[in-house]
Amino acid sequence: MTTYILRRLVQTLMVIVILSYVCFSLMTLMPGDPVELMISANPKITQEDVVRLRAFYGLDQPTYVRYFNWVGEIAKGDLGYSRTYRIPVTEMMGPSLKATFVLSMGSLIFSILIGVPLGIYCALKPNSKMDYVVNMFNFGGISLPSFFLGIVLIIIFSVGLGWLPAGGYQTTGMHYDSWFAEMLDKAKYLILPILSLSVQSIGRFSRFARSAMVEAMRNDFIRTARAKGMSEKVVIWKHGFRNALIPLITIVAISFSSVFSGALITESLFAYPGVGRLIYTSIIGNDFNVAMISFIISIAMVLVMNLVADLLYGAADPRISYK
């Protein structure tokens, strides 16, 4: 078990290192390096200045040398400055990570709470009218682009009805009397993003929950349990659901990656200050330090979640042993 976790951790770390190098070299291929931006900002700049600046920032060196310099700085705890916001990257990451975590987790929990019961209900009453309707809804949910749903929600609830804010994180200039008032205010800004982010995963969870449950209820031990005269409740929840849980945990855990990735677009649409939006705006704004760090941290987060999912999988299914 311990060796398994260790091996997986080393693997994850390797993926992160390789990706950070790939990402670093990709950044050099993006339009506009720091010196090019200075050239465009200052028309009087001379050729000697350009050469001197390039040497000063180390831009005249090959990519791998720059990469190792950059890693060295990070190892010393210096993540660099954001060029757009003029503050250290360390100060930016904390709040945005928290915001994204709240959004993704909120969406994940919301979609599990809606999707899984729907799927189980349909599995217990296959081919009913409800099953048919839910199946249609699932297909719709999987196929609906989250950004389009977000725009429609804004049009209905913010532009049309004026009930909910169209975007942001909290009401600006607000003084909170209590933590409860603060939470309530922030929750108001979370409703639309969570809704638009969840639709796809609700559809996916509900489909998987249905097929997993149908599969589980077909087992011979279900018939045995019924034959023993157990109540339907015990048969469904203790014998059926417990077994349906195993494939469900996998799909929920894998979904963290897709919810997190979908958060990028939802955050951009709702101007929600999370990591996804940070990645997007920093890449668009040539803010390389921020882009690199936020990209690597979000990838590390997803990979660690995948690892946790694999471990949970073992906890749910005793047949699986870690070698």
Partner: peptide
């Protein structure tokens, strides 16, 4: 490893590269 990555952030990073370069 490719499957485990969050698709959109990766796509955004790659899509931002300058084709001319």
């Amino acid at each position: 490893s490719l499957l485990s990555l969050p698709t959109l952030p990766v796509l955004v990073v790659i899509a931002a590269i300058d084709l001319k370069k």
